[in-house]
Design a binder for these strands. Structure first.
Length: 283
RNA sequence: CACCGAUCUAUUUAAC
């Protein structure tokens, strides 16, 4: 079963649907019964293709066949319901899962919290997070939970609250730690707002938590420096990043564009050659 | 206390 399930998952990623069907037939030919993993993978694949009806049918089919869905199976469908904006049904489905003997896990809650955010119900999302933090639901939040809330607070203009949550994460005893997602979310937001000093401070702070700024972080910050007309700072950030990472095409495009704004043709040329030197192909 | 497979979060650069 494992072999077949792996193969099926691979084909699904490659969107080779005919192959999936063929493999399923081959399985039954050989008397191998699909298990929870197989069905769950199929349901996920169908959801990702937007075939939600098919996914539900698959869910029913697996139950008919006496294969008991797992929390993962339910989580996928809860996610699907959220994506369709059916947040109440998503919660109801979680209820059904619990009744069937599958406990909610952190992914279940993360999915629902994201659903609430996307449905413009930040208040409820945060309330649910608080309940998790207080231990009222029996599942403690993780980095993904906080990242989701932080991201959506940013989108909804709540950057200061987002920063409070980030502070909470770095505190000892919170049981949480920020990851590179956390930082890229906030650095991106601060950059958009033109709060370059704050963004750079955060970039420095990453090292204190065992994280290194990524290409994305540097590129984002450089772009906002360019917008703010802080070319010197941008260039020094660029040389700093060059020591640690390989700047990519986006990095160079950003720099060339910045030089272009001021008509600095020589600089542009230099950058262009530098880019070729490093084996990058211009796009 | 039996190796392997399934689910959740961020995405930066050009033409106003």
């Amino acid at each position: 079963v494992v072999t077949f399930t792996c193969l099926i998952n691979g084909l699904q990623k490659a969107r080779r649907w005919a192959g999936v069907k063929e493999l399923l037939n081959k399985m039954t030919e050989q008397g191998i019964k699909p298990d929870v993993f197989t069905y769950t993978g199929l349901i996920d694949g169908l959801c990702k293709e937007g075939k939600e009806m098919e996914a539900m049918k698959m869910f029913d089919l697996m139950m008919e066949k006496g294969v008991e869905p797992s929390t993962v199976t339910y989580n996928i469908l809860i996610n699907q319901l959220c994506k369709e904006g059916m947040i109440d049904d998503a919660f109801a489905f979680m209820e059904r899962m619990n009744v069937s003997g599958n406990a909610s896990d952190v992914v279940t809650y993360n999915t629902l919290i994201l659903g609430l955010c996307e449905a413009n119900k930040m208040g409820k999302a945060i309330k649910l997070l608080d309940e998790m933090l207080e231990g009222k639901v029996g599942v403690y939040p993780n980095t993904v939970t906080l990242n989701t809330i932080i991201h959506w607070l940013c989108k909804r203009g709540g950057i200061s609250r987002a920063l409070e949550f980030q502070k909470m994460m770095v505190e000892k005893g919170s049981g949480l730690r920020p990851d590179s997602f956390t930082y890229s979310i906030i650095i991106n937001e601060l950059s958009k707002l033109g709060k370059i000093d704050d963004a750079e401070k955060l970039l420095r702070e990453m090292k204190d938590h065992g994280l290194s700024p990524t290409l994305l972080d540097y590129n984002t910050l450089m772009e906002s420096m360019s917008r703010g007309g802080m070319k010197e700072r941008m260039m020094s950030l660029f040389s700093e990043m060059s020591e640690k990472l390989r700047p990519d095409v986006i990095s160079f495009n950003t720099l060339i564009d910045a030089a272009g704004r001021d008509g600095e043709f020589e600089t542009m040329k230099k950058l262009f050659l530098d880019m070729l030197d490093r084996g990058l192909s211009p796009d």
